[in-house]
Simulated assay, not measured.
Amino acid sequence: MKFSRLTSAVILIAAFASSPSDAVEPKIYTVVSNGVKFRHFEVDLSSTNTLLPRDITGRERLDDTSENFKYGQFEVFIRPTSLSLPNRCNGNYIVRMPQSIDEDGHEVERKQKLYYQIEQAAHDPVKVVPVVLELSEDPAYACNLFFRTDARGRHIDYVGKIRR
């Protein structure tokens, strides 16, 4: 079979565009607290790497339509070809924000606002949302990532030791 130069170039570009070498290899930060290691990293969520719960079929949606959203809990997904992490994931990375129960609702509002920013970035090729995510230490949970939070469930949007 003979291909034209244009066809060959398109095939080559498509192969490189979907190659795992395009995956971001983030710098991993490690913090030890009370003898426990916590590993986290920064990544930009965007339309090229982020999927929303409504984009995934066959599972319960945990988004702004979920009952738990009133507590700030949600999840989004990152395509596996977008990240190069120590423990590889064969499917989409599931990125979870835990719920908060706070007296004044401020923390819940922060988390909900973050979800809406991510939702916009997932649909707008110009927008990005920088986030800090934690890795699971267990390779069996390689596909599970978590928005960084402190012991009280407060969202932490920076790397390094948690400031009190």
Rank of each mutant, 00 (worst) to 15 (best):
M1V: 15
M1H: 14
K2P: 07
K2D: 13
F3D: 02
S4C: 14
S4M: 10
R5N: 14
L6R: 10
T7V: 15
S8Q: 13
A9S: 14
V10I: 15
I11M: 02
L12I: 13
I13C: 05
A15W: 05
A17K: 03
P26L: 11
I28R: 13
V31D: 10
S33C: 09
F38D: 11
R39T: 04
V43N: 04
D44M: 03
D44K: 13
D44R: 08
L45D: 01
S47C: 10
S47F: 05
N49L: 07
L51K: 05
L52I: 11
L52Y: 11
R54N: 09
R54S: 14
D55Q: 03
G58N: 09
G58M: 12
D63P: 03
T65N: 15
S66Y: 00
N68W: 10
F69M: 01
Q73I: 09
P80S: 08
P80L: 06
S82E: 11
S82W: 10
S82P: 11
R88E: 11
N90D: 11
N90E: 08
G91S: 09
Y93H: 07
Y93R: 03
I94W: 09
V95G: 08
M97H: 07
Q99N: 11
I101T: 13
D102K: 03
D104C: 06
V108K: 04
V108L: 00
E109F: 07
K111G: 04
Y115C: 02
Y116K: 15
Y116R: 15
Q117G: 03
Q117N: 03
E119P: 00
E119F: 15
A122R: 09
D124T: 11
D124V: 10
V126N: 13
P130S: 10
L133Y: 13
D138W: 00
D138E: 02
P139Q: 06
N144W: 08
R148S: 01
R152T: 11
H155F: 14
V159W: 07
V159M: 08
G160N: 00
R163A: 06
